[in-house]
């Protein structure tokens, strides 16, 4: 009986992630349009696009081109299983935060392999920017994770969520965690890859970067993957700092609030250059996170 529930959870969770992700993507386009005084596409637009993509025939540049995409999407799906959504957390006990840090590598690596195999320098430039950006946000991100791990003295996300449920949200529970939370919020756009940090996929500069040779089902899978990435980045933040939730609705509202605030910033900012991005990421967020870590270690 328990086994069946577990299996059901494992199947259901990625679907929930997907639905939320697609919803957020649609919402993003709508709100951005409204901010720009446009009408914007309907909220189900990403879904329509996905169906359309699946219906087309695309081109392929070889085995690794295919396999890379498969790998990256698989990585995202597995990652989703590791992050608790309300009480559903099938694989949370198989490694904890460290494994999450490592599984987060599979997705960009898969895309990197795939787009590298496409043989287009735009793709290569895009991927190199992606990695450099990743190096940029990883420094504060690791500091943040370490601070959390140290404060709660545990690697397991479930434990962290439970402690917050019993007590208060991390972000307001102590000064170091507050600083860390703010730092996380500042680098969240970089993790999600949205403007102003979307130099990876820069339509005007490098012809969509890694996506330049994708078509048909590849674009569809990539959209799924983008949806999952959004979901992962946001739920991680909510779980770590905003207390998670036992309640679907509350959880969803938290995700929404964070996302919309980020969206407002996204809609009005132009794109950063990679050097500016690195300077920014290694500047204030890193300092805040560092302060958080040091304070946590002293106290």
């Amino acid at each position: 009986m328990i086994m069946i529930i577990e299996v059901v959870k494992i199947i259901v969770l990625p679907l929930i992630a997907l639905i939320i992700g697609i919803f957020l993507m649609g919402l993003a386009r709508m709100i951005t349009a409204r901010i720009h005084w446009r009408y914007g596409p309907p909220i189900t637009q990403p879904l329509i696009d996905m169906v359309k993509f699946f219906d087309q025939r695309g081109i392929s540049h070889g085995f690794i081109f295919d396999f890379g995409i498969i790998l990256s999407l698989a990585g995202s799906i597995v990652l989703v299983l590791f992050i608790p959504f309300c009480k559903i957390a099938p694989l949370s006990n198989s490694g904890g935060l460290l494994v999450i840090l490592y599984l987060m590598l599979i997705t960009p690596l898969g895309i990197a392999l795939s787009s590298g195999a496409s043989g287009n320098p735009n793709a290569s430039i895009g991927i190199s920017r992606k990695f450099m950006l990743a190096l940029g946000y990883e420094v504060p991100f690791i500091l943040i994770i370490l601070t959390i791990m140290k404060s709660y003295n545990s690697l397991s996300l479930i434990d962290i969520v439970n402690v917050q449920q019993a007590g208060t949200w991390s972000i307001i529970s102590s000064l170091p965690l507050f600083l860390t939370g703010v730092a996380y919020f500042l680098i969240l756009p970089a993790i999600l890859g949205v403007r102003p940090f979307d130099m990876t996929t820069a339509p005007q500069e490098i012809s969509s970067g890694p996506k330049v040779e994708y078509s048909g089902k590849y674009l569809a899978l990539l959209s799924i993957e983008h949806a999952l990435t959004l979901y992962i980045g946001l739920t991680l933040f909510v779980n770590l700092f905003l207390g998670g939730s036992a309640n679907f609705i509350l959880f969803f509202i938290k995700i929404l609030i964070v996302f919309i605030i980020g969206l407002f910033i996204n809609a009005v900012f132009p794109r950063f250059r990679i050097e500016q991005a690195l300077k920014y990421l290694w500047g204030i967020p890193t300092l805040l996170a560092l302060a958080g870590l040091i304070l946590t270690m002293i106290i």
Binding site: R57, I59, I69, K217, L221
Partner: peptide, 18 residues
């Protein structure tokens, strides 16, 4: 996960080799 995605992938329309 790889199996799942592969199923989706290969059940979609075949792409042209280029």
């Amino acid at each position: 996960a790889i199996a799942l995605v592969s199923i989706i992938f290969y059940s979609a329309k075949r792409s042209w080799k280029v």
